[in-house]
């Protein structure tokens, strides 16, 4: 019918595919093609520039024999677990709290999201001051009379990674809050009332009625947070520079150092591939469940 009205009907039917194909192809081919390229590099002797002498898993061996990589990996584990757990708890608490009636909620919500909206490279300056033993928090508490108070994580090898956790939690909990708040707003008030009529206390109502409903929100928050964790780069770069020594390095910073400052392309590529598989381990189950979910509707 429409083809009668439009002389160019067949073109118009093809048009949606014509406009979609180049974008998709460019994206998928570029990204996945480049990843294969990186994978290939990781099996070569490349240092400053690529050279195509294949050496098998040598670079991976060198990578895992490097104590610095061990530190980066265990830092990622500490950082990832703490960052995700604390952000979820704080975000949920803030969301439940903001779900009460509050004046100026829109403005509050924006302020809670600001840390996520501004670059950490920039806000890291203030954090350096806050965490600096001689200037910020430690000094403040000492001046209030608690002269024994110590808070010098930023300059302690064992503790520096926890300052990254603090900054990352600060950055993301508002964002998690917004996601949970959206979930809470979608819940019908009568559900709570029904639970309360059945004799549930408000805490019980939240625990047994609300939290299960929020499961999808938890799920997406965890996926987004874990991929933020693996990609984290600018936090370390801005706050500790990986120091003291290399005690607060994360894998992305490790790669940055080895790629450019040390001209170890093979090792860098190997570390990139390991990170990639880490992300895939999280991503594949997620995409799989998304796909299954979408087939149902």
């Amino acid at each position: 019918m429409s083809s009668q009205r439009r002389p160019s009907g067949s073109l118009e039917r093809l048009l949606p595919k014509i406009v979609l194909a180049p974008t998709t192809l460019a994206m998928v081919v570029c990204m996945y093609g480049f990843i294969v390229w990186t994978g290939a590099l990781s099996f070569t002797k490349s240092r400053m520039l690529p050279q195509w002498d294949f050496t098998g898993f040598d670079q991976y061996e060198r990578l895992f024999n490097n104590p610095r990589w061990d530190v980066a990996l265990s830092n990622l584990a500490i950082f990832g677990v703490l960052f995700i757990a604390i952000s979820l708890v704080l975000g949920l608490a803030l969301a439940i709290f903001l779900d009460q009636k509050i004046r100026g909620e829109g403005a509050i919500r924006t302020i809670y999201l600001y840390p996520m909206a501004v670059s950490f490279v920039v806000t890291g300056t203030a954090w350096k001051w806050i965490l600096n033993p001689g200037l910020g928090l430690e000094k403040l508490v000492r001046d209030m009379g608690f002269t024994d108070f110590e808070f010098r994580w930023l300059v302690e090898q064992d503790m520096a990674i926890y300052t990254i956790v603090i900054a990352a939690v600060w950055q993301s909990s508002g964002f998690v809050m917004a996601m949970f708040l959206a979930g809470l707003r979608g819940i019908d008030d009568s559900l709570i009332k029904a639970a309360q009529i059945d004799g549930a206390s408000p805490t019980q109502a939240y625990w047994h009625v609300i939290l299960p409903i929020l499961r999808p929100a938890f799920f997406s928050a965890i996926v987004i947070l874990s991929h933020i964790a693996i990609k984290s780069f600018d936090l370390v770069q801005a706050l500790t520079g990986g120091g003291p020594g290399y005690s607060s390095d994360l894998p992305a910073n490790f790669m940055y150092t080895f790629a450019f400052n040390r001209a170890q392309m093979g090792v860098g590529a190997a570390s990139a591939m390991i990170m990639l598989f880490g992300v895939l381990a999280i991503l594949v189950p997620y995409l799989y469940s998304e796909l299954r979910g979408s087939n149902r509707d």
Partner: peptide, 9 residues
């Protein structure tokens, strides 16, 4: 996917 995976290429 992490950006590091495509940095070299």
């Amino acid at each position: 996917l992490p950006a590091v995976g495509v940095l070299y290429p």
